[in-house]
Design a binder for these strands. Structure first.
Lengths: 143, 143
DNA sequence: CAGCATCCCCGCAGATACTG
DNA sequence: CAGTATCTGCGGGGATGCTG
């Protein structure tokens, strides 16, 4: 039904299922949007759409290893938040194009900046990890 | 044991547990770092530490609603990646201060920019949601 | 106070089958 | 091709109890 569909959609993209953390206080709304944008697949979708609009299956291939279901859910969440525009052409076979809205482009640029930073600094991170693991290993030997 | 401890640490902060998505290909490393940084609690920790160094319990209170376990795991992951510096003073009662490294500060600034954008555009997002839900509701009535 | 160990639940996400 | 509906597992993450 429509209701359960909405429930699924709201649960998508890393958003908590509204009962799990509902220990009295409500989660502040901006964190929800932030989690949609920074969600596992949300990040990759936004970055991919920043290059150019994509069809559904193009996105699947571009991202790789995302299940059809998760991609659908992620796109629905982002569409609902007004970040992604969905253009379904009434043709056979169906053709649906996804693109960024103005709002979505702003978000995507922030996200891409972060992703670019990550790739740039990747080697620093890996060095840090080696140092950390080294220290841990020697601590283990000492005990 | 040390081995299992490391396994827990690696699974922290939204990082997949190394077997779940291991359908043959390895996940590219930069996505892992990206997911640490954009993880549920990672985002909030980085933003909080951008203001000033925090003690463990200060972070807990500042973030709110984060379990001790998840905060520990998140901090360990970020420390291992070289983004967070852990300073444990050998005193009683124990006192541990967490601060950003140079690398971590760069990441945190990107993340905060994204968070700021989210709060700024929050009302646009909510308007978009109303529009979206409205459209869905009328579609349901039509069918 | 900081953090580790253990238990356990439930919800995310993958797999599969079916529709327009 | 672009979805929806349903089932299932397993791992994230909360709760609790214990150590230094």
């Amino acid at each position: 039904m429509a209701v359960s569909t909405r429930a699924v959609s709201r649960a998508a993209a890393g958003e908590p299922a509204a009962g799990k953390y509902d220990t009295g206080e409500a989660m502040c709304p901006y964190r929800l949007v932030l989690e949609h944008v920074t969600s596992r697949w949300g990040v990759l979708v936004l970055i991919e759409l920043l290059d150019r609009p994509h069809r559904f299956s193009e996105l699947r291939r571009a991202i790789g290893r995302v299940s059809e279901k998760m991609l659908t859910q992620t796109l629905q969440t982002l569409e609902r938040d007004g970040l992604v525009h969905r253009d379904a052409k009434p043709v056979i076979p169906p053709r649906v194009d996804y693109s960024l809205t103005g709002l979505g482009r702003e978000a995507a640029e922030q996200v891409r900046a972060l992703a670019d930073w990550t790739t740039d600094r990747m080697d620093d991170v890996e060095k840090a990890r080696l140092t950390y693991d080294e220290a841990r290993a020697s601590r283990t030997r000492a005990s």
